[in-house]
């Protein structure tokens, strides 16, 4: 019996390790493929270079770094307030019945394939931007709108959980002092749930930076630094997806190197989210 337990423990450990080894392999693989070209060009020239011309051996990804950040920033501006207000409504004001309908509905948003978001963006948002603001419509603004909607479920449901974890006694204490429900939310519940909400926002940010397909379909993908919200843009992720199919040699390695930059950025964001979430638990 004890012998059998040992075996089960061992097999479970192997399975757990295989998941982690997949991560390790991916990490190793992109660094293995991408580092030589960074070495060759120089890290600084690679991330600060303005020109991306693989056929001429020019590999500068600054426009795409800027593009990724602009698109993400726009998505946060649109998505975060919407998601937070949604979470506050669901957690604090909605009746259990309304909540039981709305919460699953918002979570369904997370299950829609990103290509569908891209398609809606192309058919609805891009023409709308073109007709309203001129230009092609394929733009930072278009991407931000679509990404803002895509990150809604992530931020809403994690913030919702953070709000629900706040003890009822805090709310009672506040209401019993004659505070209105909104004052209670604003002055007691939100400050208490701050860490959970920050973690939710950072995870949403990670999703927005990492999104590829929807962005490719709406971004316009040109290789310039977008100066207005209505300029076309290419992000780090779309650069990889667009060119990997035909790239060889240094070009191929430079795409892996783009992946390294993306990997590092998202790792930093996730660690930050975990750190903040742990800080919340420790309190």
């Amino acid at each position: 019996m004890i012998e059998q337990e040992k075996w089960i423990k061992f097999i479970l450990m192997l399975i757990a390790c295989s998941a982690i080894s997949a991560l390790a392999l991916i990490t190793f693989f992109i660094f293995w493929e991408g580092l030589p070209v960074i070495w060759k060009i120089g890290l600084w020239d690679f991330i600060s270079g303005l020109k991306w011309a693989p056929t001429k051996g020019k590999f500068g990804i600054l426009p795409m770094i800027v593009g990724s950040f602009e698109v993400t920033f726009g998505a946060m501006i649109l998505g975060v307030p919407l998601a937070l207000l949604c979470a506050i409504y669901l957690a604090e004001f909605a009746s259990p019945r309304t909540r039981n309908i709305l919460k699953p509905a918002i979570e369904v948003l997370a299950g829609i394939p990103s290509v569908v978001y891209g398609f809606i963006g192309m058919m609805v948002i891009v023409p709308f931007l073109r007709n309203t603001f001129g230009g092609s419509g394929f733009s930072v603004a278009g991407c931000s709108i679509v990404l803002g909607i895509m990150i809604l479920p992530t931020i809403t449901s994690i913030s919702f959980d953070a709000l629900m974890a706040i003890p009822r006694t805090y709310r009672e204490g506040s209401l019993a002092l004659g505070a209105t429900p909104w004052q209670t939310v604003k002055m007691v519940v939100l400050p208490a749930a701050k860490s959970g909400i920050v973690a939710a926002v950072i995870l949403g940010m990670g999703r927005a930076i990492g999104e590829t397909m929807a962005v490719i379909m709406i971004a316009g993908n040109s290789l310039i630094i977008p100066l207005t919200p209505f300029d076309p843009v290419r992000t780090l992720t779309s650069n990889i997806a667009l060119e990997m199919g035909y790239a060889t040699g240094d070009h191929r390695q430079a795409l892996f190197a783009t992946g390294i930059i993306l990997f590092v950025v998202i790792m930093c964001l996730n660690s930050l989210a975990n750190w903040i979430a742990n800080k919340a638990v420790a309190k």
Partner: peptide
């Protein structure tokens, strides 16, 4: 109700100061 609760305050079974 808000001003009623201001005039008639309540202390609870479990101490519930705000996390402030």
């Amino acid at each position: 109700i808000m001003s009623l609760r201001k005039r008639i305050g309540m202390v609870f079974q479990q101490p519930n100061p705000f996390p402030l």
